[in-house]
Design a protein around this nucleic acid. Structure first.
Lengths: 198, 198
DNA sequence: GTCTATACCTGGATAGAC
DNA sequence: GTCTATCCAGGTATAGAC
């Protein structure tokens, strides 16, 4: 339970390699080399590869949770919080162009593997989804909050995938602008209840 | 070169398994079992696993090309063609919910593997991208044609990924509706050059 | 806690009989 | 064209010395 130094180093290294190369393609030898320990020593800290995956997922969940809650604790308004979320695509643009979205790509791989870790990968989606839904509710979109949350999630996933396929374009930046414009339209719709339709 | 019956069966089986389980996770034994031949017999038809991948990618490219060109040969107008493309998400909804997008997931995996087949996977994206760009140009969006094509591609990818993560929702259908509404807005923008903005 | 050595399995690939 | 037998590399996991 106690977070020993090497245990922590293993998690950090595995986290990075699972992102960059994928879970299945990352061998113990790869992680051991990065950490600077022997292959055998591994099993003192983790009894199996699945245990490492669990630890990585736990670490990611905690990390993303703290990031999202941090914005709220700073007192940022709901719309700004969602804008921050969208802005992640720009903050991590280099990694996203090289490896796609860490959440989406890992989920997809585990799903195809039929690996039980698919569940924890989905939990990460849940974390973002629920948090976004809350923000949209605070923006007054009580009825469509979940739909809007899913929409933003899907847009982010798609942008990350195509930025990975076409890393040499300004596509990513342009799509983020459009997503922020969409956010403006959504928040305006709350302020102006008089719509053109119906 | 000649398309023998078993060779063709191998390609079909590999195509399906690469989609359902991923390229790396699909072994010769898996494909052999589906086709009904022995492991050894494999190498009479393909000298390596990479050769099978190449054949699968070639087959997919040809298949998708024929689908896209088919709509044009039928004389369907540009906007309807794009709508057909969006509609693929509904036509294949069952498979998409189970395995995501065949193009996107395979690209992502090959990209992470550092596999040379990443190139042919990108060619599939190119096929859709160029075809969509042509359609938007025919719709009069000469300047933004490529941006619009990329936007539709990204939306499709994101919807497929999240439909895979949340297969039990009507999310997919709702997003397709929104994409079709977006297409309407884009084609209207061409007809009505007088906009509200600026 | 960390190491070396090793068992065991899976999967890609080859050889050669039929 | 298809089979069986076999080799070899790489990866997970274990045993036991230090």
């Amino acid at each position: 339970m106690a977070a020993s130094a090497t245990r922590e180093k293993i998690i950090v290294a595995a986290d990075r390699l699972f992102y960059e190369r994928g879970f299945d393609m990352t061998s113990f030898a790869d992680v051991a080399e990065v950490v600077g320990i022997s292959r055998g020593n591994f099993y003192y800290h983790f009894k199996s590869k699945d245990e490492i995956l669990n630890a990585v997922m736990e670490s990611r969940l905690k990390d993303r949770h703290q990031m999202l809650e941090g914005w709220i604790k700073e007192g940022q308004p709901a719309k700004q919080c969602v804008a921050n979320f969208i802005h992640i695509l720009l903050t991590n643009r280099k990694k996203i162009r090289a490896y796609g979205c860490p959440v989406g790509t890992l989920f997809t791989e585990l799903s195809k593997l039929g690996h039980p870790g698919e569940e924890s990968a989905r939990h990460l989606f849940d974390l973002f989804r629920n948090w976004l839904r809350q923000r949209f509710m605070e923006m007054g979109q009580t009825k469509d909050a979940d739909r809007l949350a899913m929409h933003i999630l899907a847009r982010s996933q798609g942008v990350a995938t195509l930025a990975n396929a076409y890393p040499d374009e300004q596509f990513l930046e342009a799509e983020v602008d459009q997503m922020l414009a969409w956010l403006d339209a959504v928040s305006d719709a709350d302020i102006k209840p008089t719509q053109r339709s119906s």
